[in-house]
Design a protein around this nucleic acid. Structure first.
Lengths: 123, 123
DNA sequence: AATATATGTAAGCATTTACTTACGCAAATT
DNA sequence: AATTTGCGTAAGTAAATGCTTACATATATT
């Protein structure tokens, strides 16, 4: 952690512990000790991860008495999503599930022709 | 780079230079010098980045005479996409555009009720 | 008031990262 | 055959990373 470093979302989620922290608090705020209980590493280590996540805007800390509740702010993930989604065309799973979903709508909607074209040049 | 390290896609794309490399070769294979021409850092540095990308399966190198063409294999990005997309509901832009698209289909398809539920609990 | 709890932060440390320069080697060119 | 080109790799280095332990501090509890 040392001095001061580049902080961006891509780097923030590069660490598996930080991804797990995000998973933990995505749906419900937790205080720091509660988060740390889920890991084998020390509480200060978790505190430092939270600091990093805070610095890149992915976590907001709300103080409540002596506790600090960590809330996930995952808007920043859209940056990752946008970057990755440029390359959607290079793998199939996701396209397939979207495809079958559109086909399902299509089946109930024989009048609509244009959603076909939407399906093919979506990206 | 030293000895041997954890290699996963999240860490691979954490580095901005590697993301640029991916951008460069996503649509057309390039040999190493051609890639390096786009950066200020040395050719060996690029070579090391390519090695990392190769180690986590995002680049395949095809030798052709003395040249080595680097081809992007971006299937691995689906792992990132899947992880990030769990949290789609936490930012709006993407949902909005998908939402308006579904609304548009919906408008042409008054019989189909279930796509409404699909829209709300899509994730 | 004394203690316990929840936390931040500093300092130290081993490891990893991202580079550099120097070199080696095979394939192409001359 | 000699040289140039395209590349990998080793060794060295500064900085970053991820952790630890030790300590400080504010808020609760007793």
């Amino acid at each position: 952690m040392s001095i001061e470093a580049r902080r961006d979302v891509f780097q923030a989620i590069a660490d598996p512990t930080r991804r797990q922290i995000i998973n933990l608090i995505a749906h419900k705020s937790m205080n720091l000790n509660a988060i740390a209980d889920n890991f084998q590493i020390s509480r200060p280590a978790i505190s430092q991860h939270i600091k990093i996540l805070t610095e890149c805007g992915m976590v907001v800390v709300r103080q409540e008495g002596r506790e600090r509740f960590c809330e996930a702010k995952l808007d920043g993930l859209s940056e990752v999503s946008n970057w990755v989604d440029q390359y959607k065309q290079f793998w199939n799973e996701k396209l397939d599930s979207l495809g079958s979903y559109l086909v399902k709508i299509q089946a109930n909607n024989p009048l609509n022709e244009e959603s076909n074209t939407n399906q093919s040049n979506n990206q």
